[in-house]
Design a protein around this nucleic acid. Structure first.
Lengths: 340, 340
DNA sequence: TCACCGGTTGACATCGATGTCAGCCGCGGC
DNA sequence: GCCGCGGCTGACATCGATGTCAACCGGTGA
């Protein structure tokens, strides 16, 4: 900093004023200082700024999943990528941490807070009985819940309309004539799993579909295949299955192929998440497409808002769109009255 | 810190000495201080430590890929997860950044260095003509090249034996009787792509196989499928194809299915990377299995070594193991002499 | 009795920025 | 000629740790 001040022929105070956009220096000086700093490749030390009350210029993101179930879905990295697009503009860094469970995640927040390491965090995979928002609130650490609903002091949410999306899927399958629909869900603890299950129930009640249920899994291809096999072995198997992610769905396709059950002639399949996986199996999967990149961007924007002192709120992202491909068709027996 | 000193009934100096494991305090006091700090949930501010010369307690990782091609392979998150297992022990944070290209990555390193934001970095996807090691060297920022070879002041590498792995695949296919082998490679700029291509050439020359070549792609399912279709439409199509990653290979399986070409009866396929994808297509893919988690661990260990002042070196990880599944068999015409 | 020793204290400098404040300079207006 | 004002200086405090150093305290051995 001394160097910059010297080279620009001004005092250190002037440099600080100039680069932080505060009044007290002329526009000419400001520009000169800026260009000298650029030329010298100088940037203020984050440590020093953090120490003088500026915050750490970093946001945190903890992913609580056992290592082995990690990284199958493209979803997560896409989300992070969207987050970064926004953070980059503000010169904010992303501190990323993978831990085993939610307890470790809470501990992480406490550590980060105690060390003043992050200014705020992004919270993913919100759960039904989730201790994390309370931890953040009690620490006073700003956060944004991705896929959450609540908004309280220092805690915003980005709301994803799982219920609406589920309704659109059910409506679509019902219009094709399906009566026996099964939902192969993800982890039952997750908030969005419960929302989807609830929406499925209410929608099918509304439409008068009796043979409907949700089965939870751990999102793995193994369970996806196992559940599907079990379903197909039933005396009255479902004619349509909705899977909570692309991995489950792809495993479902494989299981149907094993049983030599033609898709979609005998069984319709829908994936909740559109990714390359959906176009890598045969037949191509009808899928709910959301935009993880955009979700990440919105979440990051909400967080920067909070850091700027804006009040907490709940933002929304567009409802996922159903992309119809080859894996869905009217049920065997042909359409609306076939099965009844 | 004052609070801790007070509660433990000692001076601030004693607290600092105690918690940093330096001589000058009795074991009893050390323990008491430790427990008080624990109890109060106190941790030293990273900013303050960094300022007094301790380093930022953070390592950086930049991923230079366009957002849309991101996150298809499980490989990357597994790697990160392995990295974290080691970093966690040392209370090191991981600053993670996604950028568009290598130039942006170099700029990132310069920024981080200027801001004293990281103590070292992990460099992934090394390239043939790679400017990044030079940038790191000129900055004096310690780094570990994952999948690299060089070791110079402040730059270690974790060596992955692509050549040996390629040799084992070629040997296996040759033993089955394949003569016409095609390698569907990844990005040609990447160092490991070139190593694999070179190894393929030298191995097949050694074995006297003439109909062999490498074709580069961008790793996407789209190109994987397109290249495979083109290959199958040739008058003398290959009898075996080796794909540089799981996504390409899965796309290849799909393309073969489109053409109604039975795998492995008419065409054998091998994936360079074992993941759930390989067990989600039919037939299941024979694959080279490496352990990204272990790779991440080794890389992180090398980096902590460097940070501790150890000299740069090249570490190795085990050669990938070929897992034979359903997608490989002798070529049509049956084995060794069939095609000649 | 005194020197020595490990354990400990307290005061102070240091890291690199920001925040504050009195004061200086030159220029324009009255 | 003087005031006032915008632009700028220079010195000092601050953030929260670490590093250093002289000095102190109680116990032991000479």
């Amino acid at each position: 900093m001394k160097d910059v001040a010297e080279r620009a022929g001004v005092s250190e105070s002037a440099v600080s004023f100039a680069l932080n956009g505060r009044p007290g220096v002329s526009e000419a000086t400001r520009e000169r200082v800026r260009s000298v700093a650029e030329e010298l490749g100088w940037r203020p030390s984050t440590a020093a700024r953090a120490l003088s009350g500026e915050g750490a210029a970093t946001v945190g993101l903890v992913l609580a999943r056992p290592a082995r179930t990690l990284g199958v879905e493209p979803f997560f990295l896409q989300l992070v990528s969207g987050v970064q697009q926004v953070l980059a503009e503000r010169q904010l860094g992303l501190l990323f941490q993978v831990v085993e469970d939610v307890a470790a995640e809470c501990a992480m927040y406490e550590h980060w807070w105690a060390e003043h390491r992050v200014d705020g965090v992004l919270l993913v995979d919100p759960r039904a009985e989730d201790p994390r928002p309370d931890v953040l609130a009690s620490l006073g650490l700003p956060g944004v819940v991705v896929g959450g609903t609540e908004a309280r002091r220092g805690l915003s949410s980005v709301w994803v309309d799982d219920a609406g999306a589920m309704a659109s899927v059910v409506e679509y399958l019902h219009a094709l004539g399906h009566q026996r629909i099964t939902h192969v869900a993800g982890l039952s603890e997750l908030a969005h799993t419960q929302r989807r299950m609830a929406s499925l129930r209410s929608e099918t009640e509304r439409l008068g579909l009796p043979h409907v249920r949700s089965l939870t899994t751990d999102y793995s291809d193994a369970e996806g295949a196992a559940v599907t096999r079990r379903l197909l072995d039933e005396p009255d198997p479902p004619t349509a299955v909705v899977y909570d992610n692309d991995v489950l769905a792809a495993a479902g396709v494989a299981a149907a192929a094993e049983r030599r059950l033609p898709v979609p002639a005998r069984l319709s399949l829908v994936s909740w998440e559109d990714s390359v996986l959906c176009r890598m199996v045969h037949p191509w999967l009808t899928a709910l497409a959301r935009d993880p990149l955009a979700l990440g961007r919105v979440a990051a924007e909400e967080l920067t808002r909070l850091l700027d002192g804006a009040p907490a709120r709940t933002a929304g992202v567009p409802v996922p769109r159903l992309v119809v491909r080859e894996s869905t068709a009217p049920p065997p027996g042909g359409g609306r009255d076939g099965d009844a």
